[in-house]
């Protein structure tokens, strides 16, 4: 777990301090440092929230996990093993230290170390989320931009109608329903793809497709609206007055300017996509963290729930920071805003 999410956050603050000395010459360094700082604070809140969660649950979590029949001795033993008999601040310190060193305790039910389980399963979740992330961008940006060009100034009424309705529809189909429908059609009906599990390239097709369709539809709508705004600006008019070829006009003068809003919305959509893997994994029996969490919640296996929430939450936060930094590189205005 720590290998995939916490490591980038750990060593970065130190160089950021070194670079602060040169901040007058390189303002973007300060910008990146501020974003990293924000990430660290958010991660700290996330870790604290997962810690507090266990203690806010009504009743004794260990008793709940072990069931009513468990003897008081067993409950006491397990409480001791889990460190739950220590004072709260001490528990918190232990928990923090554990998170930083990658020790997330062990499952109440199976007694297996949570970190090991996440270590084998989280990469599988990323194997779904990352290709989906890339595909969403690759589909939504060109589609939205193209539709904007085709439909600007009241032109292309039919194109606009088809686009708005089709994307509106797919936007309203939740990923788990999409996954179920794809599974019924392509696995049960046409027998084109394997039913469940991770086995070779063809097993990726349906889960990734189920994840991509909704976010791609909603992002392309946002991209279209943003592109329409940019296409109406004076600088695009000025660029047109210079008779630039279309390719240059759209790639250099339009695309970077619509990235800020598109990616800001995009980041929200895409972090929703990380969460979406939880549901989609359950449909396709994908061996990621999503198939673990629902079971863990039902079994009240709190160390495991904590671990999964930590990993997914940290992934979302990291994703948000990366998008922020990417925006700063692409669009100098957002960088200036970040410095204020």
């Amino acid at each position: 777990m720590s290998a995939t999410t916490l490591e980038p956050a750990g060593p970065l603050p130190a160089p950021a301090v070194d670079r602060a000395a040169r901040r007058t010459r390189r303002p973007w360094v300060r910008f990146v440092a501020s974003r990293v700082l924000r990430l660290v604070v958010s991660l700290l809140v996330l870790v604290t929230a997962t810690f507090v969660m266990v203690h806010l649950i009504p009743g004794d979590p260990v008793q709940a996990a072990l069931g009513e029949q468990a003897t008081p001795q067993l409950v006491e033993l397990r409480r001791h093993e889990l460190g739950l008999d220590q004072p709260l601040p001490l528990q918190y310190v232990h928990y923090l230290r554990g998170v930083v060193t990658g020790d997330l305790g062990s499952s109440i039910v199976t007694e297996a170390p949570v970190a090991d389980l996440l270590g084998t399963r989280f990469p599988n979740t990323l194997r779904l989320a990352l290709p989906a992330f890339v595909l969403v961008i690759l589909i939504a940006l060109p589609l939205g931009l193209l539709t904007a060009v085709r439909t600007r100034g009241g032109r292309g009424r039919v194109t606009r109608g088809v686009f708005v309705n089709v994307t509106g529809f797919f936007n309203s189909v939740p990923d788990y329903v999409m996954a179920t429908v794809l599974s019924v059609i392509f696995v049960v009906g046409l027998r084109l793809f394997p039913a469940a599990g991770l086995s070779g390239p063809s097993s990726y097709v349906l889960p990734v497709a189920a994840l991509v369709v909704g976010p791609a539809a909603s992002l392309s709508r946002i991209v279209r609206v943003e592109a329409l705004k940019v296409l109406d600006t004076e600088y695009v008019r000025a660029a047109k007055s210079r008779r630039l070829p279309r390719r240059l006009l759209y790639l250099r003068h339009v695309l970077p300017n619509m990235m800020t809003a598109s990616l800001t919305f995009g980041a929200m959509i895409l972090s929703g996509l990380v969460a979406g893997t939880v549901l989609v994994e359950n449909v396709f029996g994908w061996p990621g963290v999503g198939t673990v969490i629902s079971q863990a919640v039902i079994q009240k296996d709190f160390p495991l729930v904590q671990g999964v929430l930590l990993v997914l939450g940290a992934a979302v936060l990291l994703l948000n920071m990366l998008v922020d930094v990417m925006l700063g590189v692409l669009d100098p205005r957002s960088r200036i805003g970040g410095l204020e």
Binding site: T233, E234, Y235, V236, R237, A238, A239, S241, R242, R243, L244, P245, L248, R252, H253, P256, N257, L330, D331, P332, R333
Partner: peptide
């Protein structure tokens, strides 16, 4: 051969494109 100057130069220059690129572009393209 036709060049245009606009009312608000702040609006007419692309905020995401460097000054130099604005200048170099027409010479390279045309």
């Amino acid at each position: 051969s036709m060049a245009m100057i606009f009312q608000d130069p702040g609006e007419a220059l692309n905020p995401a494109v460097k000054v130099g690129t604005h200048l170099v572009e027409p010479a390279v393209v045309h």
